[in-house]
Design a protein around this nucleic acid. Structure first.
Lengths: 301, 301
DNA sequence: ACAATAGTGTCTATGAGACAATATCTC
DNA sequence: GAGATATTGTCTCATAGACACTATTGT
């Protein structure tokens, strides 16, 4: 045991706390970045047809350097008097005027050069909001806040066997757009396995009009959405309290990026929903029952 | 647009970076805490029987205040010249002399009072190590490092319907022990849903002999292990390169906390493994083929 | 009447759980 | 030979995919 340790053990806990020097360690800035998603109704070209739905993310045009004029996730620094969760709620409210949403911490990004200003570690959160309540106002630090379509797609995948293990490389394209603006990024995800030891690593190859490492964050969030939509209740946070099963199915389709068969979908989600006695009419075709989420789902096990 | 913003936009990016004051925001300390798991062979009471396996976690006895004498996860602060991932690797090496392991970031814990010394935000990582390589040495800051059995179990679950939504409460007990020491904690997990808005919250009710909020971190890690064992390759990181299917099954059983039927298990994991032509003998019963992980698993989609 | 969605029924293929049966070793 | 695990086979049941069919609206 070192001399220092012996001395410290002789102190009472209070004495130790008094003496503790908070400046002994390097302290990076810590921020939160918000991935706010919604599913909107797009224009319908025919009065009979259902409107298509689209997955959208909120981005803010940066009014200041660095990345001035590019699009970024809403974000802000964590204060001394709030938890990270509280910071996420405050930042979301301040920058987008949104509160009362589903919130989930995703991942913490801490590469050295990710912010050119200083060492900033950023904790990303996913927020999901009901499509009918998405009237967003830009906060004071941002020139503009807009909803964007988001899509990711892998374009190439390669597995290489090495002496000690193997490497899996995957190239992914991220596309972000709306009527006026667009942004894209290309990323490479590398998974290396050598003698039991394993590592996964993302790299931004290109990033047009997207600030910081936010392309990585968006990709990560889309992945999480897809993974969780089947076995959690996240889809319901993207809809109003009452919804039709077709609407729910559209939300699943938009998140998973593929079409689903109605019969199978209905069977799969019966346990998650409760029928109400209300009906949606005036739709240009047969009306449909409205459902709501079943809180007792998942109450087994 | 504020006057400040107008002025900032007039600067070039370099001028802006030079002028940027890194001390403008509050900067908490950031640490990493490591959840190092392994699966060990326990004593067998009969030369014929297979040894039981057990899931274990590495804890370090705190040599200094706060929580002096209690057990804690290996951890350390993130330096200015390293990413969080690099800090995790460094801390693991320094405190437990382990390198070359599977590493995965779990969650970032940032409640105000979680460390009585100062505002510390901690990023937790899960590390998995082959059961045959678990000879661990304590680092210099720790009086002792030891493997502990870990188990969690929910003891009560309650759903309440409120005016605006519902609340699901779950009480969980965490038990940690080895031949000489033990620790326990009781936690409550509350999930609140009211008009679309949803929140999940953990609370430590009791924590005996376990430092900080590490009970929460352990619980979170166990949950993640259980969730991922079926659809990822994490189980293989807990075994040597060559293993029998019975050993692999035991790893699954220990993580999932329940017995599995051999026939169904073998069917389910055939795609993940490759048969070798080696055989394990001298086991007191019929010998078994040795398998290894199949790197081409998951290469579809 | 028509175009569209809403909702149900059914056949089939697949996979998991249960359990029986067989194989093969060490002591 | 006994006692254990290793490994395979098979029956059943639940579930997902595919697709056909019926129901019901607004225009």
């Amino acid at each position: 045991m070192t001399e220092k340790q012996t001395r410290q053990q002789a102190l009472t806990e209070q004495q130790f706390l008094d003496e503790y020097d908070v400046n002994r360690y390097v302290r990076p800035s810590v921020s939160v970045d918000m991935l706010l998603f919604t599913v909107t109704d797009e224009e319908r070209d025919n009065y009979r047809k259902l409107s298509d739905k689209a997955l959208k993310i909120l981005l803010i045009k940066r009014g200041v350097h660095p990345y001035q004029g590019e699009w970024a996730l809403p974000g802000g620094f964590v204060s001394a008097d709030e938890s990270i969760d509280e910071a996420a709620i405050r930042v979301l409210k301040k920058e987008t005027n949104v509160s009362e949403v589903y919130l989930e911490q995703l991942y913490t990004w801490g590469d050295i050069g990710r912010d050119p200003r200083a060492r900033v570690i950023s904790c990303s959160y996913m927020a999901l909001i009901d499509c009918e309540l998405y009237h967003i106002q830009a906060g004071e630090d941002a020139a503009d806040a807009k909803w964007f379509h988001v899509q990711d797609q892998w374009i190439q995948k390669k597995t290489t066997v090495t002496e000690k293990g193997w490497v899996i490389e995957k190239w992914v394209e991220l596309r972000i757009w709306n009527d006026e603006e667009s942004a894209t990024a290309k990323l490479k995800i590398t998974k290396t396995v050598e003698n039991g030891h394993s590592r996964e690593q993302q790299e931004i190859l290109e990033s047009h009009n997207l600030a910081f490492d936010h392309a990585k964050m968006i990709l990560y969030a889309l992945e999480r959405l897809r993974n969780k939509v089947d076995y959690t209740d996240i889809a319901f946070h993207l809809l109003p309290e009452l919804f039709t099963l077709s609407e729910l199915q559209q939300v699943f389709e938009v998140i998973l990026g593929k079409e689903l068969l109605a019969a199978a979908f209905r069977r799969k989600i019966t346990d998650k929903v409760v029928e109400t006695n209300q009906i949606r009419r005036n739709a240009g075709h047969r009306p449909s029952k409205l459902y709501k989420y079943n809180p007792n789902w998942n109450h087994e096990q």
